[in-house]
Design a protein around this nucleic acid. Structure first.
Length: 926
RNA sequence: GCGGGUGUGGUGAAAUUGGUAGACACGCUAGACUUAGGAUCUAGUGCUGCGAGGCUUGGGGGUUCGAGUCCCUCCACCCGCACCA
């Protein structure tokens, strides 16, 4: 009987579907286990072989956990809002609803093809009104909340109003403006609008201003990656930054908790480190510099208050509001010209092109708070408006960028490090002593830092401060294809639709996204929704026309899977307190700081407000690497239509051309297919080597434009889903990137056929009831142990190897015994579920193999009692000798030193040391 | 530029705690079986050397009886950098 994977897989997929075998219930006595994949954006290109890597890993883990007795939640859905669908709509006029629906259907088909055990009854789509109803609802919770720094949690804003009525903001300084102070009397005489303005500065979801890329020619706001080299990607039009009113989430209030609770998570150190660095906590000081001829002050943040006497100039960010007020008339033209230049520069460019020094002098001098010396004030792009206070004190002798700036503009440099500073390069190390610094001279950096802060506090010029690099999260997009905000403006004042002041419209979410015919941007950089006037203008006021960003829906989707059809709540308390956080989350590192940080914040906010009983979303995180493409190249002899094979290309002047990997078998090009590929290749001629045309190969990102995309459907058709699943795992460790090579899949396919032949020959089932031998049981139980261990540590590639070793050995032993093969069919189920089902049923078992228990291994077959030791002389292995594991060290030494090979290598020298590491190795040092 | 990751045969990789480097596969070579082979099986395959042996985990240096693994330093490539998702 042949291994007919097409029939087998088709049949079992149908059985699974008909019996709802993967449906998960919320009530059970079994312990729960929640395994989640990062859900995909359903792009028009469909899945390529790189996408399912993580899904296969989680599927193996989910099946394994289920067989180990857990109630496993393993759902899948779609992150269905996004820019590409909208862009496609702009180009083709097809509504994103239509294309998204189509893309999802294609994704589903591709996913089903691979045989996953998802409970599809729980599917979520972020673009579904039934889903985004709750995204909007959560936004309202954030809008109606503020962050209480004393209690260190989010609280309802109604409670803050109560506090203001009692005591003003005395004990609750404003997170957006620490100058803002008012008492209860003030509060009570403020107007409605005045109070709402203040509350807005406390809300966790709040309205403020930010700069966006604005393209005049396209009449639209562009995303960062739509701006390439300072011009729009589409059309190459000039772009500049424009200040716009935007929604934000006050994630900065969560900075400390987002750092500290990382310790409770089972994530890789690298991932935690990236989050820590992104949040960027730094201890330092805020220092205020008075200006010479102005009432204005400049406050800077510094992590090095110890260098305060080394300040030679101040630098203010070019966007800083204060610039207009402080620039002298003589310098005005220069500063404005500079600001104009910076408008065209991306933050990335400003940070990365450090060697390109630029700036402008404001003409103004500040007064050093301690030395009282005049300090020139400059503006320069290396200072970013969004970080710290948007201004720095520059210490050229201690900071590289300050140093380069001072050198470039010939600003005199004060040396506060004595001999440590050589005049050529800043001394930025953190050890050594401060000199030339008044009362700080002679102190270490640590001592000086504390003393400097004390002095600043005493003089009223500064204070110690903790600063975070993290910025509040921009939550507005000037786009159509996203969640509308449940916000209306009465006059210019924003109200949530569920507030009392809002009258005459439906006060419930969802605020549905209106259908539109065109997706062109609205006036003045507004999103397309601004054009839908009958939607925008309501009896209550005009609606917010921005939509929410991509991460809105993905910040809480893991909660919805727990109770996906609930129309009364985002998820019931029963469901969330049963499933709780995700036990295992699998996805790519590219989400290290975006999605994962936002999800964590939303979870904490929902926890604070009492909606869920846990405050971290993802207990364990496993990152999957990327599968890269392997591009194939043909070599056209320059100026001709002749193509020379890879090995001979050096003899000609050639142009490298990428060819579609589908036309290449390994490295050999199908020249006929190539001729038919494009009309211009129809009469191509080939210069062959050994009768073949051999292509060049290069590893690159898998992408359509590089003709190196491999569709999993094609692989499944040719080799079957089980082979595909095992091959993806066999490629290498789950967390590293590796190139796809279709050729290598045959080894895995051969393995499955060989496995099959343990159970069947040409005539049919050949499994016998004979008792298994010691050797057969040994390899079986070793394999059971290794597979279990490997799955637990996500080492799926070595699992596949172990299966191969096992099957190779059983084949050699000619083993066809039920006692062995029944268990083997069970343990292969997580990897090759279709084949496992077929073997299980052919062995006469009833029910799905997924309901079987994962077998336990027996110690007696796994533990060895002797070991073949490598015996080394001076660290070089010279012999192999077998000893009992419990052998006496003295006996071992005696026997080793008597061994002729060892004696030979000791070359008559005396033994200096004898190293015997039990179970590992032996080394004789002479 | 900053942050994070990766580097081992011709290729994908293994080596779980500092202890026999290259398991398991792909590819390649030779052979068997076969009407046929893109089926199956057997043997070989890091480099170098006739051989004993020597060399070998991106480069250089160090710690150790012993380093792919730890430390220092340099290089290359990949991911992220806040409006792609």
């Amino acid at each position: 009987m042949e291994y007919n994977f097409r029939e087998i897989e088709k049949n079992w997929k149908k059985v699974w579907k008909d019996t709802d075998i993967y449906k998960v219930t919320n009530d059970t006595s079994k312990p729960k286990f929640y395994i989640l994949d990062m859900f995909p954006y359903p792009s028009g290109a469909g899945l390529h072989v790189g996408h399912p890597l993580g899904y296969i890993a989680s599927d193996i883990y989910a099946r394994f956990k289920r067989m180990k007795g857990f109630n496993v939640l393993h759902p899948m859905g779609y992150d269905a809002f996004g820019l590409p669908a909208e862009q496609y709509a702009l180009e083709t006029g097809q509504h994103p609803t239509v294309t998204t629906e189509k893309n999802i259907a294609r994704y589903r088909e591709q996913l089903d093809n691979i045989g996953f055990c998802y409970d599809w009854s729980r599917e979520v789509r972020t673009s579904d009104a039934k889903y985004y109803k709750w995204t909007q609802w959560i936004f309202l919770q954030l809008f109606h909340s503020w962050y209480d720094r004393t209690a260190n949690k989010a609280r309802p804003i109604s409670e803050l109003i109560g506090i203001f009525e009692q005591e003003g903001n005395l004990n609750n300084p404003c997170p957006a403006d620490d100058e803002l102070q008012f008492d209860a009397d003030n509060w009570n005489i403020y107007t409605e609008q005045g109070r709402r303005d203040i509350l807005m500065q406390y809300r966790i979801a709040y309205l403020s201003y930010a700069e966006v890329w604005w393209c005049e020619a396209l009449g639209t706001v562009l995303a960062n990656d739509e701006v390439v080299n300072g011009v729009s990607e589409r059309g190459g039009h000039p772009v500049e930054k424009k200040r716009m009113r935007q929604w934000f989430l006050r994630i900065t209030e969560y900075a400390e908790r987002l750092i500290s609770s990382l310790d409770t998570l089972d994530w890789s150190d690298a991932m935690k480190e990236m989050q820590r660095n992104w949040i960027g906590k730094s201890n330092g000081a805020e220092v205020t510099f008075h200006l010479d001829n102005s009432k204005e002050d400049i406050t800077v943040f510094t992590t090095r208050p110890d260098t305060i006497f080394g300040v030679d100039f101040l630098v203010v960010a070019p966007e800083h509001e204060i610039l207009n007020a402080i620039t002298t008339p003589e310098q005005k033209a220069e500063v404005e010209k500079y600001q104009q230049y910076v408008k065209s520069r991306s933050e990335r460019e400003r940070m990365s092109e450090v060697k390109q020094v630029s700036g402008a002098f404001t003409g103004t001098y500040a007064i050093h708070p301690l030395s009282k010396k005049p300090i020139p004030v400059w503006t320069a792009e290396y200072v970013l408006a969004g970080y710290g206070t948007g201004a720095i004190m520059a210490v050229p002798s201690g900071d590289d960028r300050d140093h380069a700036f001072a050198k470039h503009f010939s600003i005199p440099i004060t040396n506060i490090f004595g001999e440590l500073y050589n005049g050529e390069e800043a001394y930025s190390a953190k050890d050594g002593k401060i000199e030339n610094s008044d009362f700080l001279s002679g102190l270490t950096i640590k001592e000086a830092t504390l003393k400097a802060i004390d002095a600043l506090v005493a003089s009223g010029a500064g204070r110690g401060k903790v600063n975070y690099r993290l910025r509040d999260a921009g939550f507005s997009r000037q786009r159509y294809w996203g969640e509308p905000f449940p916000i209306v403006y009465i006059g210019d004042v924003p109200y949530a639709i569920d507030e009392d002041a809002v009258q005459g419209i439906d006060k419930n979410t969802p605020v549905e996204l209106p259908m539109v015919e065109n997706y062109k941007p609205g006036p003045e950089g507004q999103g397309p929704l601004a054009n839908v006037t009958n939607w925008v203008n309501t009896k209550a006021g005009h609606r917010e026309t921005n939509t929410m960003p991509g991460y809105a829906g993905s910040s809480w989707y893991f909660l919805r899977y727990m109770d996906p059809h609930n129309d009364n709540e985002f998820a019931s308390k029963e469901a969330t307190s049963y499933w709780r956080e995700v036990d295992l989350y699998i996805g790519g590192t590219e989400h290290a700081v975006g999605h994962l940080l936002y999800s964590r914040m939303w979870t904490k906010a929902l926890y604070d407000l009492g909606h869920i009983s846990f405050d971290e979303p993802f207990k364990k995180l496993v990152n999957q690497g990327m599968i890269q493409g392997s591009s194939r190249f043909a070599y056209r002899v320059h100026g001709t239509n002749k193509y020379v094979s890879h090995g001979l290309r050096k003899e000609y002047k050639v142009d490298d051309l990428r060819v579609d990997v589908a036309m290449v078998d390994g490295l050999e090009l199908d020249t006929e297919a190539f001729k038919n590929w494009r009309p211009e290749y129809a009469d191509a001629e080939f210069i062959l080597e050994d009768g073949k045309y051999i292509c060049g190969a290069e590893v690159e990102k898998m992408s359509k434009s590089k003709y190196n995309v491999v569709n999993p459907d094609d692989i499944v058709t040719q080799y079957g889903a089980d082979t595909f699943r095992m091959y993806e795992m066999f490629l290498g460790p789950i967390d590293v990137s590796k190139p796809w090579d279709t050729k290598g899949i045959e080894g895995v396919h051969r393995f499955l056929k060989k496995l099959w032949r343990l159970y069947f020959d040409e005539s049919g089932l050949i499994v016998t009831d004979e008792p298994a031998t010691e050797a057969e049981l040994k390899i079986l139980h070793k394999t059971i142990k290794k597979i279990g261990d490997d799955i637990e540590r996500f080492s799926f590639n070595t699992s596949v190897s172990q299966f191969m070793i096992c099957v190779n050995e059983l084949s050699t032993l000619n083993c066809h015994k039920r006692e062995v093969l029944e268990k083997l069919a069970v343990i292969i189920c997580p990897f090759a579920p279709h084949m496992a089902e077929e073997l299980w049923s052919k062995l006469g078992k009833s029910g799905s193999v997924i309901t079987a228990d994962f077998p336990a291994y027996e110690d007696k077959y796994v533990t060895e009692n002797t070991k073949k030791y490598p015996v080394a002389v001076n660290g070089k292995t010279r012999a192999e000798m077998e000893f009992a594991l419990d052998a006496e060290p003295a006996d071992v030494e005696k026997e080793v030193l008597a061994d002729p090979t060892i004696i030979k290598w000791m070359e008559g020298k005396d033994k200096k040391k004898f190293i015997y590491v039990k179970g590992k190795m032996i080394n004789v040092v002479v």
